[in-house]
Amino acid sequence: MKSDALRGHLDALLLATLDGGQLHGYAIIEALQLRSGGALDLPTGTVYPALRRLETAGLVASEWSTVGGRQRRTYRLTKAGQRALATERTAWREFTAAIEGVLGGGPWPAQT
C-alpha cells in the first residue's frame, strides 16, 4: 500500500490501535501490521514521531513503565483522543459509504 496514502490516515490508525488499551511503540507497530494483514509497511521509525505529535495534541499520553521486565514507553488514549477517534470513525464510514456508492459496481440509480 502506498505510504503517501497511509500518511494521511496515520493519526487515526494510531488512535484506533490504542483503543484497546495502552501499548508500547513496537506493540503498536505490530498491531498495525497485524490488523492490516501486512499492508501497512511504512517505515517503523515514522510511527514514534507521529505518536509524540499526538501527545503534543493531547490525544495520547505516554509514560515509561515496566513491560515484560523491561522499561518501555507506553502510550494510551486520552479522553480527547477517544473523542477524536470517534469523530474519525464516523468521517471514515461516511467517506467509504460515499465512495462505495460510486466505485462499488452496483446498479446506477434510474435517471429521472
Binding site: H24, Y26, T44, Y48
Partner: peptide, 12 residues
C-alpha cells in the same frame, strides 16, 4: 527519543 528507538530496533 533515542532510547525508545533502540527499544524498537532491539524488538524488531
Amino acid at each position: 527519543l533515542l532510547a525508545e528507538a533502540r527499544d524498537s530496533l532491539d524488538d524488531a
